[in-house]
Design a protein around this nucleic acid. Structure first.
Length: 261
DNA sequence: CAACCGACCTGTTCGC
DNA sequence: TGCGAACAGGTCGGTT
C-alpha cells in the first residue's frame, strides 16, 4: 500500500506522540517482521533508546534514536503503524509493539507480513541503495535517470533509481503527463520528461496533503482520490475514453488509450 | 541490461 | 449459495 505520500503522512501523524519518548520494551509477535538484526538483538538494542527525530526516506519511516542508532519501518503492502494507550489490546495482525515511557505504545500491524523493521547504527546500511527523492531532485537529476531502454513505468517503480513512487502514483503521474506506461524511457522528449517531473511534484504533495489515498479500508485511510488508478472502464476525466487496465512489469496498470501515447 | 517468475503472506473479490 | 482462482498499495533473488 503505502507509497511516499502515505508514509509521509504517517510519520507526520506519529511524530508528536513519539518525539522525546523512550522505548521501554519491545514485543515481537512475528519474528520475520524484523529484518535487521535478529529479533533478539533488535529488542535489546531498542530498549532504553530515546526517539529524537522522525522523518521519511523513500517508503521508509526513519526514527533517529539517542544516544545512537535508527529504527526504520517499511510498511510494504499491508503494514500500518499507530499509537495506543497501554490499556488497548493488540489485534490479530499485530506484529510488533514498542512500549514507551508514558503509558502508550507504538504498534506495527501487518496482515500480509511483508512489512519490515530495522535497527541500524548507520542509516546507509539500509537506505544506501535508494534512488533520488522525487520531491527533492532537480530536473537535471531527474532527467538522468531516464536514459535507459526500459519501459517508463518500470523505471518509475525502480526504487534504486527514484525512490518512493509506487503503483498508484506511477499510473497517476503518467496519466497527468500524457505518457503511455510502456514507452521506452530513453525515447521521451524533454517536454515529456518535464511534464512527468511536474506531475510528480503536483500529485505527491496533493496526496500528502490529503493524507494518502482513499481505499475505503484499514490500510490507507486518506482522502486522495485517484483519477484513473483502480478505475478500469471509467471515462477518462480529460477525454471521456474508457480507462484501460493491462499489465506492465507484472503490475496492474491503468491508462487512457486516447490521451496517453 | 531488461523482462519475467516465484517467493514472501493473508484477505477479499470475481467468475462460473 | 459455494468454491477455487485471481488479485492486492512492495521488494528481492534467480532465470531467461
Amino acid at each position: 500500500m503505502p507509497e511516499l505520500p502515505e508514509v509521509e503522512s504517517t510519520v507526520r501523524r506519529l511524530e508528536p506522540a513519539l518525539l522525546g519518548r523512550t522505548i521501554t520494551n519491545v514485543k515481537v509477535f512475528w519474528e520475520r517482521s524484523v529484518a535487521l538484526p535478529s529479533a533478539a538483538t533488535f529488542k535489546k538494542k531498542l530498549k532504553g533508546k530515546k526517539i529524537v527525530a522522525a522523518s521519511r526516506r523513500a517508503k521508509y519511516m526513519v526514527f533517529k534514536l539517542s544516544p545512537s542508532g535508527y529504527l526504520l519501518i517499511h510498511l510494504r503492502m499491508s503494514g500500518t503503524t499507530a499509537g495506543f494507550s497501554n490499556d488497548t489490546p493488540p489485534i490479530k495482525h499485530t506484529r510488533i509493539i514498542f512500549e514507551l515511557n508514558n503509558g502508550t505504545y507504538l504498534r506495527f500491524d501487518d496482515v500480509r507480513k511483508f512489512g519490515k523493521c530495522f535497527y541500524t547504527e548507520r542509516l546507509e546500511d539500509v537506505t544506501g541503495n535508494l534512488g533520488i527523492e522525487p520531491l527533492e531532485a532537480s530536473f537535471d537529476e531527474f532527467k538522468q535517470i531516464f536514459d535507459a531502454k526500459r519501459t517508463i513505468k518500470t523505471l518509475l517503480l525502480d526504487q534504486h533509481k527514484i525512490a518512493g513512487i509506487g503503483n498508484i502514483y506511477a499510473d497517476e503521474t503518467l496519466w497527468m503527463a500524457h505518457i503511455h506506461p510502456t514507452r521506452i524511457a530513453a525515447s521521451l522528449t524533454e517536454k515529456e520528461l518535464k511534464a512527468l517531473y511536474n506531475a510528480i511534484r503536483k500529485i505527491l504533495p496533493a496526496a500528502i496533503k490529503a493524507e494518502g489515498t482513499d481505499f475505503g479500508d484499514n490500510v490507507v485511510t486518506g482522502n486522495f482520490h485517484p483519477k484513473i488508478y483502480g478505475k478500469p472502464g471509467v471515462p477518462c476525466p480529460r477525454c471521456k475514453t474508457a480507462i484501460e487496465k493491462t499489465t506492465v512489469g507484472q503490475r496492474g496498470t491503468h491508462f487512457c488509450p486516447q490521451c496517453q501515447r
